[in-house]
Design a binder for these strands. Structure first.
Lengths: 187, 187
DNA sequence: GTCTATATACAGATAGAC
DNA sequence: GTCTATCTGTATATAGAC
């Protein structure tokens, strides 16, 4: 891996762990084994490197989600599989954790990968709910967009509960509740 | 309001807006109209002041929640009222936003007010679900603790979606989904 | 209780040599 | 492409006068 790649990979790790405001260029360089000059040669500054790192993290997350959402089974089965996918909740969500950072949220270039990931995920889940309703698998009353937003929110909120309590158990409990609630959508 | 109170109130505002890592003692002092000496006279340092501020914010949040959860109506009605309570989602949750900060989460004194708030809220909601089940208002299958965790998580995740998209609408949509899902708990 | 002065470290970059 | 030197500002205090 060349220096540029190592810088992006290191930034991905540190942004996940410490967030944008909590990650210094120096820390990224040290983890990457690259000097100041190398980093500022490849990127205009911290923000530009962070955009590259966040974009790559976002792509990876979408792939992982699609692997479950585009899998076998009916709508309910796939949504449940998405909810139950293993997640190290105490580490926080590599995408969602950035919503808390005011400087990141205020910068459109930094916010874009985060926004787009959730937009895609909500759309993907909403389509799944809608297809389940068309197939007669799910009741027709609930709004697919609203259900999709709620499902994504439960996962994100689960991370918050886990980190607040210092326990993976909190995340698992929220997911279990989500599974029970979603099961009631069945016809 | 004396200097000590102004310092706590200013810290509350800044911690909500910028988080623990993003809030400097200097910024707190300036907003409070107090000098360095004043702050370090009343508090041993940033962490001690933050604990005082977070504790106060946590108390306020619990009161606001109890006002709705301890209100009139059945379990479902009160849970729905809690979900639909007006929230300026783009500002983030004054409690939950801190779950993203690694330094806060790593310090037991700083994390305590956050952890306790969620523990209380989950217990309060679980009791409400359980009482609804005993009364025959709600179906008996779902686990009250899991449903409570999911409800709290949806609210927290709603904040994440709103800030990620830059739109209150995202929060409202997740809440609407939650209301529709919870409604299916009715017998 | 509050003030001003001082101190050490780090953030985030720029400059120019190699 | 990468290195080292340098720079300005901020973070988070401590010290001692008033």
């Amino acid at each position: 891996m060349n220096a540029r790649e190592r810088l992006v990979a290191s930034a991905q790790d540190l942004l996940w762990e410490r967030g944008y405001g909590g990650t210094s260029p120096k820390a990224i360089q040290e983890r990457a084994g690259a000097g100041q000059g190398s980093m500022y040669h490849h990127f205009a500054g911290k923000a530009e490197l962070a955009v590259a790192a966040l974009t790559r993290t976002a792509e990876a997350e979408r792939e992982r989600a699609e692997a479950v959402l585009g899998g076998d089974g009916g709508a309910l089965e796939r949504i449940t599989a998405y909810l139950r996918r293993e997640r190290p909740a105490l580490r926080g969500c590599p995408i969602g954790r950035h919503a808390a950072d005011p400087d990141l949220v205020a910068d459109p270039a930094l916010r874009a990968p985060i926004e787009e990931t959730f937009a895609w995920l909500r759309g993907r889940l909403a389509a799944l709910v809608a297809s389940g309703q068309r197939d007669g698998e799910l009741r027709e009353g609930p709004d697919p967009d609203a259900i999709a937003a709620a499902v994504v929110a439960i996962v994100q909120g689960g991370y918050v509960l886990a980190r607040a309590s210092g326990s993976q158990r909190s995340f698992d409990e929220a997911i279990e509740g989500a599974v029970q609630l979603v099961a009631a959508l069945a016809r």
